[in-house]
Design a protein around this nucleic acid. Structure first.
Lengths: 219, 219
DNA sequence: TGTACATCAGTGAACGCGCGTTCACTGATGTAC
DNA sequence: TGTACATCAGTGAACGCGCGTTCACTGATGTAC
């Protein structure tokens, strides 16, 4: 009886947005969204396959049809994060095409911190290598894409005579600087220590300091 | 019967190093050591009160006599980490008393990375604020001690006319730089990206770059 | 020095719980003819 | 267009497990007299 009623309902609403009778439609995405919500609200330690399924309103066995296991689920989530980061960085580079490598690098640094602040749930998982399958090809590809943009920019800076040091060291230092800033901000320590409340302003000051000193026009 | 044998054994070995009959002697320290071993070998996610007790060869209820709960245990471990970091930094400052603030700051940066590499288990917990009781007075005191040393040094640099920017920003930037370097190194990303194998050399290059540019002698 | 007693620091059983994963299953979907 | 059938994407029960915390307990220690 309940089945027949449900079916009748389905036939009426078949094309409506809310239809989610038996097959979900886009459960994979919904599960990754659930991971993000849990990490954001409670932290990485609270992610469980069952809670993720619960939030997506499916049975706890459903995720197994989309991810090999818990590690696979987290790896997919980290991959999503690296893809978004790489997209953000690529957009930043495209938007500052007309400027010099140092100002491109500064913009990338601001974008990195912005990404971390806007997506704390992804940032909190992306570098937890002990939770991930770091050999996963999609994860590798996504994180490569983000790093390649960085090293290309410091190489351009070096080629343009803008840097005091080689491109590799400049890339490592720049990455460490913005990564540390993002991590300390998200852990709450920087706010406590400095009383700062605007991560963008802080990122701007720090990246500006970096490029004007390390990448100051030396040509 | 077994009891009497055990007692006889105890009476004979009462003063021996290995004696650990009923009262442990220094269980609190032993439990913190166990936490460190687990984090180092398996990661923070694998720390459980029961496993910690198991490694210290006591019953799983024993830790409750020394720590309020799991969060208290981790908070004590983080406190131990901040204390050791502050000690390391203090020693570094004492050892470079005769030099200028920029070179003191560079030495502190190297010490920070060195600490993280030598104590990855502490570093992995110290900034996981969601796992800790961040209001714990001992934790606050220990982490204050480490930060105070940093801000004092950048203030000295500013007072000596060594910095392009104010002491607070210099402290934030310096901290972010070495913290990011340590975090990326421990996550394994930097090795993969740069092929580097010596964190000390990398820390030396990066801190040197920072102080010569940001704190270059401007007087 | 000996003894009574309070306190400390352990034990082991028990509680109720949520976890990851596997399994046989079934409803829904898509495709070949 | 209709139908048979393979495949896909879910369900719900079950597995065995380890977890954090509490509790009454007891052995060991230290102290007052």
């Amino acid at each position: 009886m309940r089945r027949r009623v449900a079916e009748a309902t389905r036939q009426c609403q078949d094309t409506a947005v809310g239809r989610r009778d038996y097959h979900h439609g886009d459960l994979k995405t919904a599960l990754l969204d659930s991971v993000g919500l849990i990490v954001r609200e409670q932290g990485p330690a609270f992610v469980s396959v069952r809670e993720v399924a619960r939030r997506a309103s499916v049975s706890h066995a459903a995720p197994a049809h989309h991810f090999r296991n818990k590690s696979g689920l987290l790896t997919a989530f980290a991959t999503q994060g690296f893809d978004r980061l790489a997209d953000t960085v690529a957009e930043t580079i495209a938007a500052s095409r007309a400027t010099t490598p140092p100002s491109v690098l500064a913009a990338m640094g601001r974008a990195y911190v912005r990404f971390a602040v806007d997506n704390p749930e992804h940032f909190a998982i992306m570098f937890r290598t002990e939770l991930l399958d770091v050999t996963d090809p999609q994860l590798v590809r996504a994180s490569d894409r983000a790093y390649d943009a960085l090293i290309a920019t410091t190489r351009a800076a070096q080629a343009g005579g803008f840097t005091r040091v080689d491109a590799q060291l400049a890339a490592s230092a720049a990455w460490a600087l913005v990564h540390g800033l993002a991590a300390l901000w998200l852990s709450g320590r920087l706010q406590v220590r400095t009383g700062a409340s605007d991560p963008d302003a802080l990122a701007e000051s720090v990246t500006e300091l970096f490029v004007t000193t390390v990448l100051g026009d030396q040509s």
